[in-house]
Design a protein around this nucleic acid. Structure first.
Length: 255
DNA sequence: ATTCTTGTTGAATG
DNA sequence: GCATTCAACAAGAA
């Protein structure tokens, strides 16, 4: 999401909006009228991100994007067709446009008045990139269930998805089903450092999996892959209804 | 052809 | 209140 935010920031902030087009309503959480009224003739003055949510500031409020599982922003010249699966397109006065692309339409588009209120109303946790060590330990120590659930739950910490959670647990050598309650304070501190490292490393590599330095699990999420550390076959299980990959040798249940 | 899986979330359920 | 399950959605793979 941080990469998306930077992508949008470079192309949309400072530009005046001259047209708004809707190709599909499924992702809209408010009326087209409300969105158009807020955006038309406005200029994006700033951009913010909290977890997987991006907010474009425009005077009267914020345009909120959530890209869901298969969503991404797309910027193009208006002489060309919008990218495939564009659901929502904002045209700027410089003859370029920003599309919200979403194959599965699992994303969301909304207008919000205030980011802080939005985060509070949706009970979204602190952002994974900005939470401090103490708060991390504090919020994690309150959770029950598996460590993977706790890390992925946006109400605990905002921003971690399925594959990066697996990567963090792989780097930290923790079995994804380990109960959070069984992790000592020290382990949580170490997990915190690993979480930050994985996020920073991913961003440095433009969130492209092929840019992740070895050893990594991110590029081995398919049957038959082997652990880059110990060469054991990578295992796939289900945790929280999500396909979960881990190395059964490196990530033993007990630390 | 049907079922499963997927870089997600939130409403329903236990 | 908290943890777990499932629908919404679309398309490619098994």
């Amino acid at each position: 999401m941080e990469i998306f935010k930077r992508y949008i920031s470079r192309r949309a902030v400072g530009k005046r909006i001259v047209k708004v087009d809707y190709y599909d309503d499924a992702m809209l959480l408010t009326s087209k009228k409300h969105i158009s009224q807020t955006l038309l003739d406005a200029t994006f003055s700033n951009i913010h991100r909290h977890g997987k949510y991006v907010f474009l500031e425009c005077g009267k409020g914020y345009l909120m994007f959530h890209f869901g599982m298969t969503g991404e922003p797309g910027y193009f010249h208006i002489e060309k067709d919008p990218p495939d699966y564009s659901r929502f397109v904002i045209t700027f006065e410089d003859n370029h446009a920003l599309a919200c692309i979403s194959r599965r339409k699992l994303g969301k588009i909304d207008i919000v008045k205030d980011i802080t209120t939005f985060i509070k109303d949706h009970e979204i946790g602190e952002d994974a990139m900005s939470i401090d060590r103490e708060s991390f330990r504090d919020v994690m120590s309150r959770k029950r269930g598996s460590i993977k659930n706790a890390l992925m739950n946006q109400k605990t910490i905002a921003g971690l998805g399925n594959i990066y959670t697996d990567e963090i647990l792989f780097q930290e050598k923790i079995h994804p089903k380990t109960p959070v309650s069984s992790l000592q304070d020290k382990s949580l501190g170490s997990l915190y450092t690993t979480m930050k490292n994985v996020c920073h490393t991913a961003i440095r590599g433009q969130a492209k999996l092929e840019n992740m330095p070895e050893p990594t699990l991110l590029t081995r999420r398919s049957p038959g892959e082997r652990c880059p550390v110990c060469d054991s076959p990578i295992q796939k299980i289900t945790v929280n209804n999500r396909g979960t990959y881990f190395c059964p040798e490196c990530q033993k249940n007990d630390e």
